[in-house]
Simulated scan of single mutants.
Amino acid sequence: MTGLVVILLACFAALAHGKAGYGPGDQDWGFVDVRPGAHMFYWLYYTTANVSSYTERPLAIWLQGGPGASSTGYDNFEELGPLKLDGSYREWNWAKDMNVMFIDNPVGSGFSCVDNSSYYTTTNKQIALDLVELMKGFYENHPEFKAVPSHIFCESYGGKMAPEFALELYYAIQRGEIDSNLVSVGLGDLWTSSIDSVLSWASFLLQLGIVDTDGHDKIESSAASTKRYVDRELWTLATLQWSSTQSVVLCESKGVDIYHVETATLGDKYVLRSMPMSQEELMYRTLMHYDIDEDRDKLLEELMQGPVTEALNITTGVKWGA
Rank of each mutant, 00 (worst) to 15 (best):
A322S: 04
M161N: 08
G255K: 09
R285G: 01
W43L: 14
G306N: 08
G21R: 05
Y139A: 15
P143V: 03
S221L: 13
T226C: 12
T263K: 07
N116Q: 08
P276K: 14
L169I: 06
I314N: 02
S244F: 12
V148L: 08
T122E: 03
P106V: 13
Q279I: 08
W94L: 12
A10W: 12
W29S: 09
L312Q: 03
K96H: 07
V34E: 00
D33N: 10
L282I: 13
E310C: 02
K160M: 12
F77A: 06
M283D: 00
Y171A: 08
T72M: 03
A14E: 11
Y74C: 13
D130T: 07
L299F: 02
N50T: 13
I292V: 06
W94A: 06
A202N: 00
D257W: 11
D214H: 09
H39V: 10
W320A: 03
S52R: 11
R175G: 03
S71R: 10
S180T: 13
S247E: 05
G30Q: 06
S53M: 08
V248N: 01
L15A: 14
E78G: 06
M283Q: 05
L208R: 11
L234I: 10
N76Y: 12
Y46E: 05
N124A: 14
S52H: 05
Y229F: 14
L134H: 04
H289W: 12
R57A: 03
I258L: 07
S222H: 04
D97C: 07
P276L: 15
F41Q: 02
V6E: 03
E310M: 13
W62A: 03
M135S: 05
